[in-house]
Amino acid sequence: MNFEEFRSRDGVGLAHLLASNAVSPLELMRIAIDAAVRFNKRTNMMSYADFEGAPDRASRHQIVPGKFSGLPFLLKDSALASVDLPLSLGSSLFKGSRAQSDSTLATRFRRAGFISFARSTVPEMCMAPTTEARRNGGPTRNPFDLERSSGRSSAGAAVAVACGIVPIAHGSDGGGSIRTPASCCGVFGLKPTRGRVPMGPFKGEGWGGLASDGVISRTVRDTARALDLIGGFERGAPYACPEGSGFEAALGTPFEQPLRIALWQDPWGLPVGSHLS
């Protein structure tokens, strides 16, 4: 498989190829790493990378059908604890910080089959409407127009997905940090409702319950399957969502009324890109 073939498929499609042994996790990891190196030079979307350890983990990965088993993945450089990668929250103060154990969500990402090989960029402390930090050497640029904004704190993840480095990446959202970069970069971003995705065990909530973790993807079905795999009650959490039949299963449910989509063509804030460089 070459990069264009890799980029043409979403996560569900690549998972099907992995499950049928048409490609291997190591093959996909090598493609993703090569793409990350190339696109990062132009967009500055990556803050940490494990280009040595990740291929080894990929070569040892056991495929589990029905998941995203063996798929390359990016973790946001937020406070999500993972033993696989250091973090900084976009700040030189926390540069190189390492977690002693995984957060519940990092464990669920791993059980879903994702193989994390890098952290995506964020603004300092994830607290700005644009993703730019001195720690990261400047702004994370929109891949469609390098002079335009890539959005809020999950912008590194959105840029990586838009470039085709990975089909799905971790994001988080308090005041628009999944939704804004997704809009700027032309990908799909959904903020999960409070309690849908676990935030423990080291904390119970963020921003008084306003913030939540999730993913950014190129297709609705990728996000639906991801939420099925990472969502669900966490013991000790202050909030919980009702369980249903599953988001991926719900995609086959017909609409009772015609679908209407609003399109806002005149941005009131930062300009977004229009050309893929």
Rank of each mutant, 00 (worst) to 15 (best):
Asn21Ile: 00
Val272Asn: 00
Thr253Glu: 05
Gly174Pro: 00
Ile230Gln: 07
Trp207Cys: 10
Gly164Ile: 10
Val159Phe: 11
Thr180Glu: 08
Ala133Asn: 11
Lys191Leu: 13
Ala249Ile: 04
Gln100Gly: 15
Phe117Lys: 07
Asp102Asn: 15
Ser78His: 06
Lys41Phe: 03
Met127Ala: 13
Val220Thr: 08
Asn2His: 12
Phe188Ile: 14
Val64Ile: 14
Trp268Tyr: 15
Gly90Leu: 01
Pro129His: 03
Leu146His: 15
Pro139Cys: 08
Pro65Phe: 10
Arg194Thr: 15
Ile230Asp: 04
Ala240Pro: 01
Arg38Val: 00
Trp264Glu: 15
Arg134Cys: 00
Thr121Gly: 09
Arg110Met: 09
Pro267Thr: 09
Asp10Lys: 04
Asp173Val: 13
Gly200Trp: 09
Ala79Val: 11
Leu26Cys: 02
Pro181Ala: 15
Ala22Ser: 14
Cys126Ser: 11
Asp173Thr: 09
Pro192Ser: 00
Thr180Cys: 06
Val12Thr: 15
Asp213Asn: 08
His16Cys: 05
Arg235Glu: 02
Pro139Gly: 14
Pro242Ala: 14
Phe202His: 12
Leu74Asn: 14
Ala224Gln: 07
Arg194Asp: 08
Pro198Lys: 08
Ala99Met: 09
Ile33Lys: 04
Ser277Lys: 07
Ala106Trp: 01
Ser212Met: 03
Gly232His: 06
Ala240Trp: 04
Ser8Leu: 07
Phe188Tyr: 12
Ser59Ala: 15
Gly113Ile: 01
Arg42Ile: 03
Cys126Asn: 11
Met29Ala: 02
Arg148Thr: 11
Ser217Gln: 04
Cys185Gln: 00
Ser103Leu: 06
Ala160Gly: 14
Phe39Asn: 00
Asp222Cys: 10
Asp102Pro: 10
Gly164Gln: 07
Pro238Met: 13
Gly252His: 03
Ser217Ile: 14
Ser245Phe: 13
Gln62Asp: 08
Cys126Arg: 12
Thr253Tyr: 00
Trp264Tyr: 12
Arg7Ala: 09
Ser172Tyr: 05
Ile31Ser: 00
Arg218Gly: 07
Ser97Asn: 15
Ala81Tyr: 12
Ser92Met: 10
Arg38Asn: 01
Ala15Asp: 03
Ile178Thr: 15
Arg135Asp: 15
Thr130Gln: 13
Leu74Gly: 15
Gly156Tyr: 02
Leu270Gln: 11
Gly236Thr: 09
Phe73Arg: 10
Leu87His: 01
Leu190Ser: 10
Gly206Glu: 13
Val197Gly: 14
Asp10Pro: 08
Asp213Lys: 03
Val83His: 02
Gly174Thr: 10
Leu18Ser: 08
Ser120Leu: 03
Lys203Ser: 11
Leu28Gln: 00
Glu248Tyr: 12
Ala22Gln: 08
